[in-house]
Design a protein around this nucleic acid. Structure first.
Lengths: 347, 347
DNA sequence: GGTTATTTGAGGTACGCAACTCATTTTGAG
DNA sequence: CTCAAAATGAGTTGCGTACCTCAAATAACC
């Protein structure tokens, strides 16, 4: 086996010659076109593998002709997350157009399964790839599977639908996020003992349920001195979260820790500040926004668990592109890490 | 201005027509070739800007012909960091060869300025891009500048040489890393007061000096109850670090915190364990290795500040490629973040 | 004005691959 | 063996750009 020569790399022509077939046959094998004997397919694939041959991306892309279209299906309404993703995609516009990629945003009510499902159905045939912030619901699952069957590459973003046949999930491991939150609360509370409150949007949401699960896991096994109170369900609304939290703080003067699983941060923080106990209670929440940034700087929040939205946007695009091209995915690169953000490492 | 049509994007031919010049002239402008009047250059560039035209990467890459060669200049010896970088580059091999990129490792004594400088000089003309773990020294700076003048793209990795004309630095903000370490030590120590020890390789190393600076900054301003002891210089050697640390622990029974700035972790940990005070002393260090992972799991170390080596390797390659192609760099994507790793979020 | 230097145009070739056509060979069934 | 079906070969075209040559047009100079 000869040394791989940088300046005269193998081409499909070389593979054809070495496999003893014509260029046309190699092309048929490479693109799963019919009319090749199984034995020949094997021979060609072996030759490709033996030389660890990779088709030149540039050549393939150029010959392909048409541009690729990707759709990002995101929550409608005045959603900060959506705005962030959009702005990060905007920063990539040069990168995208240099590769003849078109990325379009599709706003829909991702919390209504049937609306989301029909939005997804409408994309069939139009796009080469779809990234979707998905609800885990049978009709959504079916819509995703239909897209996949139609030849589109599908990536779930932030919130997964593991039972579907989506090709990839770009987002954090929410159980690990909950565990991390638990460890932070426990360690920052220190030697004190007392009660720990949890506020979530709803335990019916997969993300939230998983985070709570992880949080409780760590609490039970590592911080027996801390007593976790029943979960408050604030529906991610500020007002409701504030009411519930105020009531809880009033009833339990020995609360030393607080984990806010989802949104509604404004309300939770207000209740805490109004109680005058923001310095005694360790407060850990999610995501770095204008609000949580302020709370961290004020010392009201002690840490935020963050999933870099810029990374999520770029990873989704890269994964869709790699899938469409048939390239391998650098899974470690695309893995969304759980960032612990405290006052001193605010990005 | 017409809508950008996804399926028939502009080409150089369109730009030429619209600017009222020939393809050859556009080519001359695009590649800074001589023989074009300033006025014509302006006109062409304006047309390109007006249409926010981006040359098709695939076309350019294909027409280019020769492959690109990048060199990674890294510390020689049984160095874990180098092994990691190499293994991460190995994982990218498919990605690299599909783009006809050749990445080679060059091992050298990066701690000896003259050796490093001559290693760099030897690369001149051979490579399109160079990533180097560099010492900040006049002769190294000169060697980097020579490479740049020779047309190579140069990226400093992990350790910067800001006074050189390197095109980019891929690595963390070490002052911020020190600040983060300080915040962690301070908060994990909690309400206790006492002394804090610092072990570094050498205060002459830029990285270490910057980390110590950031650490002291936070200590002074936020944790007045903690008294920082003078820095021990362990030269990143286990044995020496252990001796110094043992002595210090013996002399100061009220040490509550310990920041290990560089390597020599094995020695520092041994001294701490031998003193039997590993549970009382908050120990924060750098990097997730086999060793620090074990120490974190054992509860000897409380947190590690980590700079994802996989991300560093990939970012260096991407930046070199973007520079070589003349593409914009997605600076946020390439920014190496400071990861806080505790037992419960070990990667 | 003529002469030279500079600028521009026109065109070609090549890069590696996708996608296609059409002719030819091989295979397998009867 | 024959004959149709299946498999394969040989070839073409075009994608968008880089890089090159040579001729033609224009500008600058005396």
């Amino acid at each position: 086996m000869k040394e791989p020569d940088v300046n005269s790399p193998l081409t499909l022509r070389d593979i054809a010659r070495q496999a003893g077939v014509s260029l046309a046959t190699v092309d048929r094998v490479l693109h799963n076109r019919p009319g090749v004997r199984p034995d020949t397919i094997r021979r060609v694939k072996e030759t490709i593998a033996r030389n660890s041959f990779q088709p030149h991306v540039a050549g393939a892309e150029l010959a392909r002709g048409r541009a690729r279209r990707f759709a990002f299906v995101m929550p409608s309404g005045p959603n900060l997350f959506m705005q962030q993703i959009q702005s990060y995609l905007g920063e990539m516009s040069g990168w995208l157009s240099a590769r003849r990629l078109a990325v379009e945003m599709v706003a829909t009510d991702v919390f209504d399964a049937s609306v989301l499902a029909s939005s997804l159905e409408a994309l069939a045939g139009e796009y080469d790839g779809v990234a979707v912030v998905a609800l885990d619901h049978p009709s959504v699952r079916a819509a995703i599977n239909d897209l996949v069957d139609g030849g589109a590459k599908v990536v779930t973003l932030v919130s997964d639908v593991p039972s579907s046949r989506r090709h990839y999930y770009v987002g954090i491991d929410n159980i690990a996020a909950g565990r991390t939150a638990g460890a932070l609360v426990g360690r920052l509370v220190g030697p004190r003992s007392g009660k720990v409150a949890i506020v979530a949007g709803s335990q019916g949401l997969r993300d939230h349920a998983e985070r709570i699960f992880g949080f409780n896991q760590v609490m039970a096994s590592e911080f027996p001195a801390l007593n976790v109170l029943p979960v408050l369900e604030g529906r991610d609304e500020d007002e409701r979260s504030e009411q519930l939290m105020s009531r809880l703080l009033g009833r339990h003067p020995d609360i030393v820790g607080l984990y806010n699983v989802g949104a509604g941060t404004q309300g939770v923080a207000k209740a805490l500040i109004d109680s005058g106990r923001e310095k005694q209670v360790v407060f850990v929440g999610h995501d770095v926004t204008v609000l949580t940034r302020k709370l961290l700087l004020q010392g009201v929040m002690d840490a935020a668990i963050s999933q870099n939205p810029g990374h999520e946007a770029r990873a989704a695009v890269r994964v869709l592109l790699a899938l469409a091209r048939g390239e391998p995915i650098l899974s470690e690169q695309e893995k969304i890490r759980i960032d612990i953000v405290m006052r001193d490492n605010l990005p």
